[in-house]
Structures are given as structure tokens and as C-alpha cells.
Write a protein that binds this DNA or RNA. Structure first.
Length: 812
RNA sequence: GCCGAAGUGGCGGAAUUGGCAGACGCGCACGACUCAAACUCGUGUGCCUUCGGGCAUGUGGGUUCGAUUCCCACCUUCGGCACCA
């Protein structure tokens, strides 16, 4: 009987005692760093964690058998709000709550039978870890990659903290963690200069990442090329704008500033001041209730001020309107109503002049009074002073050159990507290692004094405010520079900061001379295969790339990218096809499944039941198929056959062929992470082996080879049963130290093939012929076949097409 | 509105990238075992059929001897972005 509850714990213990999966530097062997995204210690592993981790584990095991020195580490992204909420609601200290959860999740991970090397575990909330998170912050600070500024920022009123732009999602601009719509606040916060790396982040040439992630990141960064142009105002100030259409500059008939633009007050005339202030107040209120979505009708107010169009010296009015956003570009635009739909609508509503300066080729001349919509297409420049007549394809370049010659602007590139806001007004995070001194300003904590540890004796307030702010003593300190009284920064860092470098801490989690041991780095980095959810495409996966590149420029890391290959798994939905959630009551618990089926069955089912990158709804009867398969594996190898001996040469050759064909496809599918076809291939081979068993193949040399190869292929998928059967069939422990077998291409070759015979593309016959059949012979056989004769009716075919080894198509 | 992914039996999915559509598994039906049920094993299972065959990979076209695969248009679903200048 197959009893997973007996064999699984037994082997897990054995492997652990023997240190089977310890990863050590070995210059003799090629290394392979297999990494899967680390979990947040929420308390329980759910089936989604299993789905992410157990196929990744199987892949790592496969690589190990292939002869690579594989490191497959695990850790916990242990800072974060849920721990703090538990503290507020139940009075448990986040430290206690977190370590309790980690203990449970570690136990669950071990029950999965993974090859995780637990000696390399890293926990981001440990002072020995966040000491280095803080150290990285200081390196960035010292090299002007971290800075502090006041800005309108996104604030989650539920989580009581600011968020990075990447952590605000959806049309309603809600908090990535809790779903609450964010509000704008003006606060002084810490930022990292991610925008310095915008262009480099768009370059994926050195890495094998899914197109989808590349597209998401590319769209997120949203690079646009254009020009920045300076308009002088009559009030004396310069207004800089960004435009992607420098060729339309002669058509700029007014300017629009965002209501929050700092120059609004300067350009506003006294008689317009009242209307302007009212509109600004309205826009500010609207900001909270999403002014973009609520009101598509253009609104705005004239400031009374004028600017001069730098190319034609026209005097153009300056307006403010909420369709111009302070957060993009310079917060001011030149409005070209003839060629921009938004400007067009605005001009029509407020009766502003529309001047056509682009004429698309081959279309009848555009007349501004008759326009029903803006004409955004490229075309010949018209009505554009010295550049009139410039053809569409040259317009952009010539206009930019002209602006530069005149000294009123230059070519410019703009991005949507913002600098990364890393300040969080929360307790359970790594404190920002800065001391604010009234004399010296923001002073970094000396490296020798790291980590700035979180105080444990804190009080939780139901207001949701960070207890660091109200701690009686913690924040008061002395300035490291002048020795005067000073205060600590009470904000902590975004937890995405911790997870931006965790793959480096795994290299040497106990190292205390730096964030990682350079010897380990030189051997293991970069990560060879990284697996995890696509939901991190524009958060963690941008941050960690930025982090790596910034560290490279500081001489801390090497190479341009931290992770060479990325693969994303999909999501396991509930049986009702909905996202799993406690409130829906459709959550599948891995602990329960292991109790009933054992880990090997769960692992096999998770690999088999869907395309890994897509995921699928759970199916509780589907998993029955997986345990049936493993029971059948057990019986096939251990149960004596009903027929002993007597298999024909042919039967044995057939068996051997199937074994090597399966080995070929399984090897390929492991390489490409097509887990479902690995399992189906093994199922198919097992069926074939049982056929061979009934004709007396059991015990023959070919059978024994099949058995060996079968168990070796099974080992990465179902490590426990494979080990048990390996030992029971008389092999030496451990199967997991065996090399991956080689395909015998000769054995895998088909001797006979089914030649498909088509007439006009329709199958009319199937012939069993030698695989090496010659073209003439194949065609002749096809023409003579019964099925064809019936359709030929004495006529001569027009054409006969032969595809070697596959088919003959007779065209009538 | 823009960008991207995906549409194949009752279900999850397969098809060496242009060559037998539906592998493998679930489910279902029938049979064996059983007093009976479950388990297990066996057989069958895309649809229609006048049993010759015909129709089938979201829809409609196209390229080709041949299309799930390539091209064009459209529909649906799911993700992302969105007054981005």
C-alpha cells in the first residue's frame, strides 16, 4: 500500500539530517541560483504559495540532477502592516505575531518536501537584516540617490501612511494593500531617484523576461520624446512646458497651468484673482473625489495674464484648468487646439482661437471654423513661419532644431515614472537612519551605529498613528555631527525596500561585514531563474531592478540585472471560479490536502491541473486523478506481475522507445517550465509500462531501465515516493543525488510510422510504413491505397505532396 | 479611448510552431468485483449521420495542396494604463 503519511515525514527527516540540499560554493560545478518570491508571514500558507513554490522546487531539483550546484533559498518578508494591525486589535506585539507565523509557515513549507536550504533563511524584520537595509539607504543618501522633498503625495487613510505611486492602483486610485481610495496630502517625504534609471529600466535586452512583464514595465515608465519650451509671461516669469509635438508650436494659441502650479499667483491679474482662487479651491476639493473621472466636461478660468509664443511672438492668454495635472511634465502646457483634442474642446467651450498648423497629406485643407475635432495626425507644417512647408516626416526634428537655435527650448524626454516614495508613517518597518538636527539638518546615522533598532516598549493607539512618533524617549538623541539635541526620523521604510535586496542576503545571512559576503556574490549571482506572481510587475520587479542598477553604480553589485530569467505563475481560483477569500468561503487549505493525499499528490496535481503561467480554478475531484496515478506507480513497480517473462523483442523495443521519448519530452518541459506536460507524459508512460507488464516485460533488463528512468524523472515532481521506490527497488539512497539520465536517441527513434494519406487535404487512409521510406515509395503506396482508389475514380492527380515521415496529400 | 494576454469537448488542458485536432486527467455511461455501496479494474465518450460520410479549435474573410498555428477585420473575457500634454 502507498502510505504517504508514513514515507513523507520519514524522508523529510532523513534529508534534513543528511544536509542533502545544503548549497555550498563549489568552483568545480556550474552554479544555478533558483529563486522564488518570498512570502509575507501572514500566518498560513495558502494554496497559492504552494502553486508558486512547489513547481519552482521541482525545477530547481531538476537543475540539481542535471549537475548544477543549485541554491534554492527561502525567507520571509516580515515587515508590514498586518502585523501592526494585529497588535492594535489584539494587543500582540508585531514581533511576537510575526515570529509565531514564521514558525508555522516554515513547518508548512517543510511539509511540502522542498529542497530549500534553511541555513540560508533571511527574515527582513530581524535587526541583523534591516541593519543592512538601513546601510543601503545611507549609501543612496550619500550619493544623492535618496533625497527629501515636500510634495503632494498619495496617502491611504485606512493604512494611515503615504504610498509610492506604484502602490496606487486602478481607476479609483486605491491602496494596493487594503483597497481604500487614496487622498492627496502635502508632506515632506523621502524619495529614491528611480527616474535616473528610467531609460535603463526600459532596456530588457540582457534578460529573458515574459513579454507581458516587459510591456507592463514599459507602459508604466511611459517614455515620451518631445521638447521643453520656455514661454515668457508678461508678468516676467518663465513658464516651461513639455510637448510631444514641437511641430505644432505655431498653433499654440493659449497656455494652461494646473490649478496647483506655483506661478498661478504671479500671472493672475487682480480682477481675476477671486475667480482663480475659487477655482483652485474647487479643484482641491475635487482632487479628493477624483476630478478626472467625475467631470469630463472641460472647466477652467482665465488668469488675466498673457505669455508670448516664442516662435511667432503672439500674445496668448494663460488659463488654469484641471485637465492639466501638476504631477506630469511641468504642470503646464502650451495648448494647440487644432491638433489636440483636449485643447480643442477647451478652446471651443471658452471661444479661444484655433489655428491650423499641420496639414495631413492627401486630405482636403483643414478649415479651423469647420473643424469638429482636433486633427492629431502628422502632416506638412503650414502657417508656421520659416518652417512652413516642412513635410511631416521632418517636422518633429526641424521644429526641435529651430527651438534650440532660437534658444527657447530643447529636445526633451519625459516619463510617467516617478521617483520612489519610500517613507511610511508606520511602526513595523526598518527605521530610516536619519537624525534631524536643528543646526545641521538631515544627518545620516553613522554606519557603526546601525541598526537603528525599533523600540519594543511601544503603545498602540487606536488612531492608527505610528507609535514611534509618540514614544517617550526613542526619538530624542544627539546630532552625530555637532552633538546638539536632535530628533530621529520617525518614518520607516517601504517594505518593498526590504524585498529589493533579499536575494543578496540569502548569499550569507549571517555575514556582518557587509550586506553580503562578496565571495558568495561572485559565485552565485545573478539569479538564474526567478519565479513569482505577475502582480509585482510594476512594483517589486521595477524596484529590485532599480536597486541593483543603483548599487552597481555605487560599486556594491556587479552586472546590469539581478535576475536573468523570470517566469510568472498564474492564480489558483476557488472551485466557484472566484478569487479565493475567507469571506467567500472558497479557500483551499494545503494542510487539509496533505492530510488526505500527502504532499507528493498535491505537488503533482498543482503541476498538472493547469498551465502554470495561467492558473485555473481548483477542482477537488481532479486531485483524485493524481493520487490514483501515484498509487498506480506504486503497484506497477512493486506488485509482482500476473505474466512473468515471455515479452517479445518487439514489445521490449516498444517499451524502450516510449521511455526514451518520454525522457526527451520531460527534459524539454522542465527546461521550459511546462509542468503540466511533464506529469501527463509520466502518466502516459506509466500506462504504456502497464501494457508491457501484462505481456511479460516485468523484470527484463529493459523493464529495469524503464523503472530507473521513471523514478529519476519522477524525483523532482514527487520527491518522497520516488525516494521510497528507489530504495525499495534495490537502489542506493539517495535518488536525489543521481544524475539526470541521457536520452538514447537511437532507442527513441520510431521504426514505423503512420503515413497519413489525404485527398484534397482530407484524410482518406492511414498506412503503416517504415520510418525511412523513400519519397517515391511513399507516394506510390499512397496512390495505391484503398481509401485513395475510391476517391480517385480513375482520374490522374494534379499534384502529389509528400511531407517526410508524416503524410502524402493528393491534389485532384 | 490606448496597450497587452486569452478564446479548442460537460471541465482543466494537449498538439515536435503549417501536416492524423482533442494526448493526459476529471466528469459521465456501461460492464466486472461486491449482499450492497465505496475503492479498484475494463470498455466507451466532440457534434450530426440516411453509416457512404459530413461538420467541428470565438465570428467573418484571406494566404496555402493543407491553418488551432500565418495575415486582415470583428466579437467576448481578463489584466494594465488613462484629460500623460
Amino acid at each position: 500500500m502507498y502510505k504517504p503519511d508514513e514515507i513523507e515525514p520519514k524522508w523529510q527527516q532523513q534529508w534534513e539530517e543528511d544536509g542533502l540540499y545544503h548549497a555550498e560554493i563549489d568552483p568545480e560545478k556550474p552554479k544555478f541560483y533558483a529563486l522564488t518570491m518570498l512570502p509575507y508571514p501572514s500566518g498560513d500558507l495558502h494554496i497559492g504559495h504552494w502553486y508558486a513554490m512547489s513547481p519552482s522546487d521541482a525545477r530547481a531539483r531538476f537543475k540539481r540532477m542535471q549537475g548544477f550546484n543549485v541554491m534554492f533559498p527561502m525567507g520571509f518578508d516580515a515587515f508590514g502592516l498586518p502585523a501592526e494591525n494585529a497588535a492594535i486589535q489584539r494587543g500582540i506585539h508585531p514581533q511576537v505575531w510575526t515570529s509565531r507565523n514564521i514558525e508555522n509557515m516554515r513547518r508548512q513549507l517543510k511539509s511540502m518536501g522542498t529542497m530549500i536550504d534553511w541555513r540560508r533563511e533571511a527574515i527582513s524584520a530581524d535587526p541583523s537584516y534591516y541593519r543592512w537595509t538601513q546601510w543601503f539607504f545611507l549609501q543612496f543618501f550619500n550619493h544623492d540617490l535618496a533625497y527629501r522633498k515636500e510634495a503632494p503625495v498619495d496617502f491611504c487613510p485606512h493604512c494611515n501612511t503615504t504610498l509610492a505611486r506604484e502602490q496606487v492602483h486602478g481607476e479609483d486610485r486605491h491602496c494596493e494593500r487594503c483597497g481604500t481610495p487614496v487622498i492627496k496630502k502635502h508632506l515632506t517625504q523621502w524619495f529614491f531617484r528611480t527616474t535616473n534609471y528610467a531609460d535603463e529600466l526600459l532596456d530588457f535586452s540582457g534578460i529573458d523576461w515574459p513579454d507581458q512583464v516587459r510591456t507592463l514595465q514599459t507602459n508604466w515608465i511611459n517614455r515620451s520624446e518631445g521638447a521643453s519650451v520656455v514661454f515668457k509671461t508678461e508678468a516676467g516669469d518663465d513658464i516651461e512646458v513639455f510637448t510631444t509635438r514641437p511641430d505644432t508650436l505655431w498653433g499654440a494659441t493659449f497656455m494652461v497651468l494646473a490649478p496647483e502650479h506655483p506661478l498661478v499667483a504671479q500671472v493672475t491679474t487682480p480682477d481675476q484673482a477671486g475667480a482663480i482662487t475659487d477655482y483652485q479651491a474647487q479643484a482641491e476639493r475635487m482632487g479628493d473625489i477624483q476630478r478626472e473621472t467625475l467631470d469630463r466636461e472641460k472647466t477652467g478660468v482665465f488668469t488675466g495674464g498673457y505669455a508670448i509664443n516664442p516662435v511667432n511672438e503672439e500674445r496668448i492668454p494663460i488659463w488654469i484648468a484641471d485637465y492639466v495635472m501638476m504631477g506630469y511634465g511641468t504642470g503646464a502646457i502650451m495648448a494647440v487646439p487644432a491638433h489636440d483634442q483636449r485643447d480643442f474642446e477647451f478652446a471651443r467651450k471658452f471661444d479661444l482661437p484655433i489655428v491650423v498648423v499641420i496639414q495631413p497629406p492627401g486630405e482636403k485643407p483643414i478649415v479651423s471654423d469647420e473643424m469638429e475635432a482636433a486633427v492629431p495626425a502628422a502632416g506638412e507644417m503650414v502657417n508656421s513661419g520659416p518652417l512652413t512647408g516642412t513635410p511631416g516626416e521632418d517636422a518633429f526634428a526641424r521644429a526641435t532644431a529651430y527651438i534650440e537655435e532660437k534658444g527657447v527650448g530643447q529636445g526633451a524626454v519625459n516619463y510617467r515614472l516617478r521617483d520612489w516614495l519610500i517613507s511610511r508613517q508606520r511602526y513595523w518597518g526598518a527605521p530610516i537612519p536619519i537624525i534631524h538636527c536643528p543646526e545641521c539638518g538631515a544627518v545620516p546615522v553613522p554606519e557603526a551605529e546601525l541598526p537603528v533598532e525599533l523600540p519594543m516598549d511601544v503603545e498602540w493607539l487606536p488612531t492608527g498613528e505610528s507609535p514611534l512618533k509618540l514614544h517617550p524617549t526613542w526619538r530624542f538623541t544627539r546630532c552625530p555631527k555637532c552633538g546638539g539635541e536632535a530628533e530621529r526620523e520617525t518614518d520607516t521604510m517601504d517594505t518593498f525596500m526590504c524585498s529589493s535586496w533579499y536575494h543578496l542576503r540569502y548569499l550569507s545571512p549571517d555575514y556582518d561585514q557587509g550586506p553580503f559576503d562578496p565571495r558568495e556574490y561572485d559565485y552565485w549571482m545573478p539569479v538564474d531563474t526567478y519565479t513569482g506572481g505577475i502582480e509585482h510587475a510594476t512594483m517589486h520587479l521595477i524596484y529590485t531592478r532599480f536597486f541593483h542598477k543603483a548599487c552597481r553604480d555605487l560599486g556594491i553589485t556587479k552586472g546590469d540585472e539581478p535576475m536573468l530569467q523570470l517566469r510568472n505563475q498564474g492564480m489558483v481560483l476557488g472551485e466557484d471560479h472566484e478569487k479565493m477569500s475567507k469571506s467567500r468561503g472558497n479557500v483551499v487549505s494545503p494542510d487539509d490536502l496533505i492530510e488526505v493525499y500527502g504532499a507528493d499528490t498535491v505537488r503533482a496535481y498543482l503541476m498538472f491541473f493547469a498551465r502554470w503561467e495561467l492558473g485555473a480554478p481548483w477542482n477537488s475531484s481532479g486531485i483524485e486523478g493524481s493520487i490514483r496515478w501515484l498509487r498506480k506507480v506504486w503497484f506497477t513497480f512493486l506488485e509482482p506481475p500476473e505474466v512473468a517473462g515471455g515479452a517479445s523483442e518487439d514489445d521490449l523495443r516498444k517499451l524502450r522507445r516510449k521511455v526514451h521519448q518520454t525522457l526527451r519530452s520531460v527534459t524539454h518541459d522542465f527546461e521550459t517550465l511546462n509542468f503540466n506536460t511533464i506529469v501527463s507524459g509520466l502518466m502516459e508512460l506509466l500506462n504504456e509500462m502497464n501494457v508491457a507488464k501484462t505481456v511479460g516485460a516485468f523484470g527484463s533488463p529493459d523493464w529495469l531501465e524503464a523503472e530507473n528512468l521513471y523514478l529519476l524523472m519522477l524525483a523532482p515532481v514527487c520527491p518522497h515516493i520516488a525516494e521510497e521506490l528507489w530504495v525499495r527497488t534495490g537502489h542506493e539512497y539517495s535518488i536525489h543525488n543521481q544524475p539526470w539520465p541521457q536520452v538514447d536517441e537511437e532507442a527513441a527513434k520510431e521504426e514505423q510510422i503512420t503515413l497519413i494519406v489525404q485527398v484534397n487535404g482530407k484524410v482518406r487512409d492511414r498506412l503503416t510504413v517504415s520510418a525511412t521510406i523513400a519519397e517515391a515509395e511513399a507516394k506510390a503506396a499512397a496512390l495505391e491505397s484503398e481509401g485513395v482508389q475510391a476517391h480517385l475514380a480513375g482520374k490522374t492527380p494534379k499534384k502529389v505532396i509528400y511531407v517526410p515521415g508524416r503524410l502524402v496529400n493528393i491534389v485532384m
